[in-house]
């Protein structure tokens, strides 16, 4: 198994397209950081809206590394699934396209083991991509912008979390993001089993993520009650739940608390169920598949 995993990792990291994701993330993060460094106040003004007329907004303090990292994650965690799909969608279909799949399954290894090792390699790639994202979005932002309390803009509220109460939230958020992105990877992995070239599963995964994200974000009561709770894209946003705090009866936010930990737990469970479902289906289909290419 370990040897198979090593081979799969080697396959992933020998392909130039693997590094497109790392390069794209670095480029996007640095572009956002430069923009905020030079015009961060405008962005904060947009977030606080007319509140700046009644409240003193300490722009210099708000524009700090933790805040910048949150903005980056908010913008990128919707797009990173597309980068994950590039590799995950290629895992089986790419081999079929190159004609190496038949040779691969002819080896004395069960198809299930082969698929599990492929999926584990994708999970490791996803993890590395997230570590890279954490490194440049959090560490680099902190180095460039410094640290302070973090301002979280929600649809109907602004939250401030003390700077000593932030790091554990980011660690939890990145861990959750790993789970969310693994769900996308599992979907692309499943779709990859059905195709003979990698374009199909990559485009299909991207399309599904886009459609589901739109459904998750549209505030239409019919979908809110029926479809939305079951879409994995609705639960992928649960990393933000670590930045929502409880309040005391006086209205002050309570450091070290999470507004709704049960909801995050539920979202984690749903995503794990999706991962299990997608990977199991992929293994099942692959085991029954007639491999002709």
């Amino acid at each position: 198994m370990w040897q198979l995993l090593q081979i799969e990792l080697l396959k992933i990291f020998r392909k130039p397209r693997t590094y497109i994701s790392f390069g794209a993330i670095a480029a996007m993060v640095v572009i956002i950081q430069i923009a905020l460094k030079f015009d961060g106040q405008s962005y904060i003004e947009f977030l606080v809206g007319s509140l700046k007329d009644s409240l003193e907004i300490p722009y210099d303090h708000i524009l700090n590394g933790y805040f910048v990292c949150f903005i980056i994650l908010n913008l990128l965690l919707i797009h990173i699934p597309l980068l994950i799909a590039l590799v995950a969608g290629d895992s089986v279909a790419g081999e079929a396209n190159m004609g190496t799949l038949r040779m691969l399954v002819s080896k004395p290894v069960s198809r299930t083991t082969l698929m599990i090792s492929k999926f584990l390699a994708i999970v490791i790639y996803t993890g590395l991509l997230l570590i890279w994202l954490a490194f440049i979005s959090l560490l680099l932002s902190v180095l460039v912008f410094g640290t302070n309390d973090i301002l979280i803009a929600r649809n109907d509220a602004l939250e401030i979390i003390g700077k000593n109460d932030v790091i554990w939230r980011y660690l939890a958020a990145f861990a959750f993001a790993a789970l969310a992105l693994t769900t996308v990877a599992a979907l692309a992995f499943l779709l990859s089993v059905f195709a003979d070239n990698s374009i199909g599963p990559i485009v299909s995964t991207i399309s599904i993520v886009i459609v589901f994200t739109i459904l998750s974000e549209m505030q239409i009561p019919l979908y809110d009650r029926t479809v939305k709770p079951f879409l994995f894209t609705s639960h992928m946003l649960a990393w933000k739940g670590f930045f929502y705090t409880k309040v005391d009866p006086g209205g002050s936010s309570l450091p070290g608390t999470i507004e709704n930990i049960r909801a995050i737990g539920k979202s984690s469970g749903i995503l794990l169920a999706y991962i299990f479902g997608f990977v199991s289906a992929a293994i099942l289909v692959f085991n029954k598949k007639d491999i002709l290419s």
């Binding site: 809206g49 919707i78 803009a153 929600r154 649809n155 939305k228 946003l237 990393w239 933000k240 739940g241």
Partner: peptide
Amino acid sequence: LPKGVTFDYDD
């Protein structure tokens, strides 16, 4: 703020 800006998690 518009939901499309904040991408809130509905907990």
